[in-house]
Design a binder for these strands. Structure first.
Length: 432
DNA sequence: GGCTACCTAAACACGA
DNA sequence: TTCGTGTTTAGGTAGC
């Protein structure tokens, strides 16, 4: 039997699309409440792109989408990455929908004449043929993370993947099996009874804030919601962070006209252009000097981490009558495995997480105190950030801290990644 | 060569 | 009965 750790999907091998395309977007709603502790403990670094974003151009967007646009990975990649890490001659247009893990740019599907100078191979493949450089675990993770509720039914996970990785629309449908297989087998993911949440009501108060608006799976009622096990979120994040990212086009942005604001989509699209012309100073100033091509991903991850930090600190649910799902309540978790039994990461060389089971409600600082999560706990920046967060109860103070930290962390992440990237390049060259 | 990480396929059960 | 979902098993590839 296979256990599923997370990690990289071997870069596109075989798997030629030979099946009919499924229409992306089977969507539904995040029917259940959120997982507060999943968000706090699980996003130990807690997060706050929300606040950060609100002080930036993105805040132009009103309403609940404020959260989403900043939570949205597209935002990270399309703005942060394309704008800054590819700045220079190799810059890609901000709206480039292209995603080419192998470094190519330009495709029949592209609506932009992006620079064709590829970061890596320059072979020029399109997102419909290039398999995402992410493992299914990470794809699922990203899908779930992008949902306001931090939980999704399988159908929506499909939808998210299809939407962002068109490759799968023409790939054999076996990938769905793989997704389900991953959900079942990978202990990073937990099944939550969808009856816990009130259908159609998102944890953030309005389902319209979510990317997928259709309610197919809601009306269907089949299946459960899946969420990320808080205990494993740092590892997923780390896996994501480790992901080699040849260029910044990890995500496909549907070239179609942006959804209407009223539909709740807009943030991503709208903010892109805004940011393109006027990036949030506090976020990007420190990155701009980076000049690194491959700091993208770490930068993105850093952003996510910071975002998580602030989410933990913020209290977006106070008005939520439904109340979030409390993951610490074992009775609400349909599938509850003892972390001790988890084989997923214990044997992984990457693993730097405490083997002992953690309280779901435990925050990052607690994790650190337990000596786990070594890599992150080594970050003085984060420690400082968290330490201050604990002491302060003023939200604005925390915001400021996060803003300051964001730039620094991005910078650090970029530098580190570039070193790793150069090492990898050297390694590959030496192999040849 | 062994191990790990991951993919893929298939079979099966269950419920709507 | 069909379909979607969820679980489990097995075989395979690729990288370290």
């Amino acid at each position: 039997m296979h256990e599923y750790p997370l990690g990289l999907m071997s870069p596109v091998i075989g798997m030629s699309p030979d099946k009919k395309a499924e229409s992306p977007g089977a969507h539904s709603v995040c029917g259940a409440g959120t997982l507060p502790e999943a968000e706090s403990a699980s996003s130990p670094m807690a997060t706050s792109l929300d606040q950060i974003g609100r002080s930036g151009p993105v805040s132009v967007v009103a309403g609940e989408s404020e959260d989403d646009e900043l939570t949205n990975l597209n935002w990270l990649h399309e703005n942060l990455l394309q704008n800054f890490t590819l700045g220079g001659p190799e810059s890609q247009p901000i709206n480039s929908p292209l995603f080419d893990i192998e470094g190519g740019a330009g495709s029949p599907h592209s609506n932009t004449a992006s620079s064709t100078s590829s970061v890596s191979t320059g072979s020029g493949k399109d997102p419909y043929k290039s398999k995402p450089p992410f493992s299914f675990s990470l794809l699922i993770y990203m899908a779930i993370e992008q949902s306001p509720c931090k939980s999704l039914p399988v159908k929506d996970i499909y939808g998210w993947i299809l939407k962002h990785f068109p490759y799968f629309s023409s790939a054999p449908s076996g990938w769905k099996n793989s997704v389900r297989h991953n959900l079942s087998l990978n202990k990073c993911f937990r099944k939550v009874d969808r009856s816990i949440g009130k259908p159609g009501v998102c944890c953030h108060g309005d389902v319209s804030s979510f990317l997928f608006m259709n309610t197919a799976s809601e009306t269907n009622g089949k299946g459960s919601l899946w969420c990320v096990h808080p205990e494993f979120q740092p590892m997923l994040m780390q896996a994501l962070k480790k992901q080699h990212f040849p260029n910044s086009h990890a995500f496909y942005t549907p070239p179609a006209s942006p959804p209407r604001f009223s539909e709740g989509f807009l943030p991503v699209y709208a903010s892109i252009e805004i940011l393109a012309s006027s990036p949030p100073h506090h976020l990007f100033t420190s990155v701009q000097g980076c000049g690194l091509k491959e700091c993208d991903f770490d930068a993105a991850t850093a952003m996510m981490l910071l975002k998580s930090a602030s989410e933990q600190n913020s209290d977006p649910y106070t008005d939520d009558q439904e109340g979030p799902i409390d993951l610490s309540r074992r009775d609400l978790v349909l599938v509850s495995r003892d972390p001790k039994e988890d084989h997923n990461y214990s044997s992984s060389p990457v693993r730097q997480y405490p083997s002992q089971p953690l309280d779901f409600s435990m925050g990052l600082h607690q994790v650190q105190e337990r000596g786990g999560w070594a890599q992150w706990s080594q970050s003085p920046l984060q420690s400082q950030l968290l330490g201050k967060r604990i002491r302060r109860d003023s939200r604005s103070d925390v915001d400021e801290e996060l803003k300051e930290a964001a730039g620094s962390l991005l910078h650090l992440a970029g530098i580190r990644t570039s070193l790793v990237a150069s090492r990898r390049k050297n390694r590959k060259l030496s192999r040849k």
